[in-house]
Amino acid sequence: MKIHFSKYQGAGNDFILIDNRDLSFKDTDKNTVFQLCHRRFGIGADGLMLLQNHPDYDFEMLYFNADGNLGSMCGNGGRCIVAFAKHLGIINQETDFLAVDGPHYAKISEKGDWVDLQMIDIDTINKDGEAFVLNTGSPHYVAQMNGLEDYDVFHHGKTIRNNDTYKKEGINVNFVEDKGDHLFVRTFERGVEDETYACGTGVTAVALSMAQHKNQTGHIKTPVKVLGGDLSIEFDYDGKQFTHVFLCGPAQKVFEGEVTI
C-alpha cells in the first residue's frame, strides 16, 4: 500500500506528517512507525504524526515517537502539524486542534512558516536535587550547567533518563546554560533515545523553570537557542502559576513523497 507523506521540520526537530482524514493509514503498528522513522531504512524522522478529523476541533493530532510508541505531547510537532494543516487548506491564520494533552490554540504567519503554539498551563515544578522536574505536555528534567557546547549530552542524558527514578516511565532530559540574553538548551529525548536538534516541550520546561529560579514574574519572553536554530517562549507568571504559555518558532516543509508499507 502506498502512503503519501510530507516531511516537516521545526528548528531541526523533524517529522513525518500524514493526512489521515480518510483513515487510509490504518497500520500504526509499532514496527511500521519505527521503520518509517529510521534514518537508514526509512524516511527518517524524530516522530510521525497523523492529522485526523475531529467533530469539535479543526483537526486531531496523533503523535508517535521514533521508537514506534504512541507519544505524549510534542511541541515542535504541534507547530509543524499546524503548518501542515494550513498548507492543506484546513485552516487559515488561527486554529484550535486536539492533541493527547488536550486542546491547543495556535496562530500561523501568512506565509505559513512561523507558528505560535499555546501550551498547557503549569502550576507545579518539583525538584530532584538541584534539577527541576515538570510536565509541559511531556515529562521533563531540567539541569543548569556551564560549558554546554562541549558536554556529552547523549551519555549524561541517557544515564538520567534510565536511572531508577525515571526508567519505567521515561523522561526527557534538558541541559541549559544561561547566556544572559538567551538560554542555550540541549535535550536528550525519550522515545528517540538520543539527543535531538530541538525539543519544544523541553525548551518550554526550561524557560518556566528558569523564570521560577530567577524569581521573575509578569509577562516574560525568553529567547532560546537550540542546535537546530532559535525558538522563543512567552508566558505570564504570577509567582504561582504559568499561564498563556506560547512556544514560538519556525515550521517548514522539507519535501513530500510516497512510501510503500
Rank of each mutant, 00 (worst) to 15 (best):
G157K: 05
H104L: 08
D116A: 15
H104A: 04
T95I: 00
H156C: 03
P139C: 05
P103F: 09
F132P: 06
I90K: 11
Y105V: 05
I122C: 07
T136Q: 05
G89D: 05
V133D: 10
I91F: 06
I108C: 09
G157C: 08
G75L: 02
G78W: 02
A99W: 08
Q93N: 14
G137L: 11
Q118I: 05
H156Y: 15
N126R: 09
V153G: 08
M145Q: 04
Y141C: 10
T159N: 09
H156I: 01
L134V: 06
F84K: 02
A106W: 07
L148Y: 11
I122K: 02
N163W: 01
G77P: 09
K127Y: 13
N146C: 07
D152G: 09
E149P: 00
K158M: 10
G112V: 10
V82D: 06
T159E: 14
G102N: 05
K127R: 15
L134T: 10
A106S: 08
I108M: 04
G77K: 07
F97E: 01
L88W: 02
I160P: 01
Q118T: 04
G78T: 13
K111Y: 00
P103H: 04
V115Q: 10
A131N: 12
E110P: 00
N135C: 11
A143E: 15
D123S: 14
D101W: 01
D150R: 12
D128I: 02
L117S: 12
G77F: 14
Y105Q: 15
S109A: 09
L88F: 03
N135H: 12
A83K: 01
R79C: 07
D128N: 14
V82S: 07
W114I: 07
D116C: 12
D150T: 15
N146Y: 11
G147L: 04
E110D: 15
A85E: 01
L148Q: 01
V153W: 09
I108E: 08
H87M: 11
I108T: 01
V82G: 08
D123T: 12
V153H: 13
Q93R: 13
I90Y: 13
V82H: 08
D116S: 15
R161K: 15
I91H: 03
I120A: 09
N126Q: 14
C80G: 07
Q93L: 10
E110W: 00
H87F: 06
N135E: 07
V82P: 06
K127V: 08
K111W: 00
H155Q: 14
N146I: 12
L148I: 03
A85S: 08
P139D: 12
E110R: 10
H156T: 13
A131P: 06
G137T: 01
D101R: 04
K107W: 13
G78K: 00
V115F: 03
F154H: 13
T136H: 06
Y141G: 03
C74H: 04
